[in-house]
Amino acid sequence: MNATEAIRERLCAATGPVRIVGSGSRARHLPARADATALDLSDLREIVRLDHGDQTCTVECGVPLATLDAALREHDLELPCLGGGTAEGTVGGLFACDPFGPGNEGGQSPRSLLLGLDAVLADGTVFKAGARVVKSVAGFDVHKLFVGSQGRLFVAARLHLRLKPRPRAEQWFTNDDLDEAAAFRLLHALRQEPLPLPVLQLRRDSDGSHAVMGRAAGRAGYVTGVVQRHGLHSVSAPTSFHLDPPPRGELLTGLAVPSALPELLRAVPAAATFTWLGGGRFQVALPDPGASDRLLAALPNVPASGVLAVATGERHGRGTPIDPGQARLADALKIALDPDGTLV
């Protein structure tokens, strides 16, 4: 039985609301509704096709990211949105819960890397969208709707992915204990490099110290040059790019352009930990709900947008105002693809 048939069978067997589960990492910050049936897809873990010459692959949704990364390493390839680090979770989960953006400016976002998919609607309809090749504009890009959908529109069984050559050399770095001015100088100097760094991150800790972190990649001579030009401090690859909220705290994720960073940092409470990735995404680990609400209220004036990605109960998903037109279209798409609201 292939992945689509397996999912179709499980969906048809389920009654009431269904929640898709991959590695289960989402449950840590968003517990399932009590009335929802868990649809565990972690056993669908076959790498169906790896065409290293074409730099594309097809994987089942439950393939662990570490498994995929190991398979790609054998061919000097990588899935760029992993940032070169080893992430936990599954491939399906990565795209479904996409933290909306690449780790660097101009970098590959999940939208760019998901070429197509085979999927199943909540009513059991099996369909495909996109293609297996790196370029196709045939039909509507329904697969793009999977990115960030949290599995609430349809269930992706197999994903067709674009891969990239693994850089011939790389060096992770962290320059910490910087004051704000020094951190901004380094960040902006690194943004001027002719080859965008695959990962570039600014961090402010709750003690007020700043750090600039990232990954220089490319040819050996170039990487060495970047490290030397900017006085970067080499470190080993991080295991995660994500912040964890403190006990009883919350995590806010959002988007801000580089020019808004100084204003954004002024709006973030001093007691919070803040990171901003070059692709525009930022995270704030906030000490308590009150601090979150104050920051959410301040963000539109920065300007920046954000939502609570880790919070309890109804607070989860609370965010800056969403454009009513976009909200209307998102609702219409949900009704079009899952009219009974089965996927939660």
Partner: peptide, 13 residues
């Protein structure tokens, strides 16, 4: 600031 609004679906995509 990014290709997808933090609020959810990639409608623009």
């Amino acid at each position: 600031a990014g290709p997808r609004s933090p609020h959810g679906l990639d409608v623009l995509g």
